[in-house]
Design a protein around this nucleic acid. Sequence first.
DNA 1: AGGCAATGTTGGCAATGTCAACTTCGCGAC
DNA 2: GTCGCGAAGTTGACATTGCCAACATTGCCT
Lengths: 184, 184
Amino acid sequence: MLAMSTSRPYHRDDLRSQLLDVAAELLEQDGANALSLREVARRAEVSHNAPYRHFASKDELLAALAASGFERLGASRSTDGGLVESGLAYVRFALGHPALFRLMFSGALTGAGADSLASAAELMRGSFGDDTPGDAVLSSWSFVHGLAALLLDGQVPEELRAGRDDETLARDILTVTATALGAG
Amino acid sequence: MLAMSTSRPYHRDDLRSQLLDVAAELLEQDGANALSLREVARRAEVSHNAPYRHFASKDELLAALAASGFERLGASRSTDGGLVESGLAYVRFALGHPALFRLMFSGALTGAGADSLASAAELMRGSFGDDTPGDAVLSSWSFVHGLAALLLDGQVPEELRAGRDDETLARDILTVTATALGAG
DNA sequence: AGGCAATGTTGGCAATGTCAACTTCGCGAC
DNA sequence: GTCGCGAAGTTGACATTGCCAACATTGCCT
């Protein structure tokens, strides 16, 4: 009984999500380039070819990872708040999951997972507000995304940082810019 | 003496820069992940291990590539102009050399080349203006960088694009935002 | 009970990054 | 001049990786 759906795995309980979990771990630990399918399989204690029953290729695994990233990013900033608060959520996500964030925007997402990924990205985008005029949305989004990316890469030099940690710096910049953009 | 390259000599004239040229080509053609040291060597018509006389590792080659990218980016926007013009140069660079731009900000630049890379990035940063207050610089830079990154990844949906091509869109957004930020 | 398709396994292949050992060449000291 | 030494290039090898093919297992459906 407990017949959920016909597609429940048996030898493993749910290898697909196990693989995704392990992969997410490895992603943040070793970076996207170092992530190997075989190592994922090893840590999940299955043979090196088992993942191919759930993902057609390595890229498809990565795409699934990225898609879940977009969902989580969208969710983490769904609570309405001004540009400052929602922007901070965006920055926190990037700094909290550096490799994932980079993967999401790496443009290396070919293959079948691309569409589900696109829709996930679309949802996330929506959280930037749909009532405001289009160009203002894009302006805010660009700004927040750029801030996150620069902080992530450690591109902000000490002169500009002036002793502030990432969180404080982000809040300051966001505040100043939000008022300027009139998107308090 | 100073002889021309009559035959395939054992010692090349300047293999290092030849390798960099070939690598830059492959980078834009196949993307950073697909770039292999061995293929670079093949196209330069040397053995698969010759590159190791000039670069300690693949990462070091990539770092050199990224460093030259920062120099070119800095140069391409050195001509002073408002945020709009210099921002457009930034965006054009990103869209003109997508793989290079991504590599530059991929954070995958470990190893020995990292310092020369850092200084090149520093120079580029300077072109954002040093007279303006620190936070304003960071704000502008974040905005421009984010815009470039989003356009690069095709993350701007049709609703926001409203039929405009990349160049026009970038100019519009930059103009609106520049006036708002008071950094005409 | 028995078939069957989904799931997982073993084995293999070509390609890659990198190490080690050998060869060839240019150049300066004698 | 020649000699040798170190830089630049070469061949060979090894472990690892992504992926394909063939085979084995397992539990649901009839």
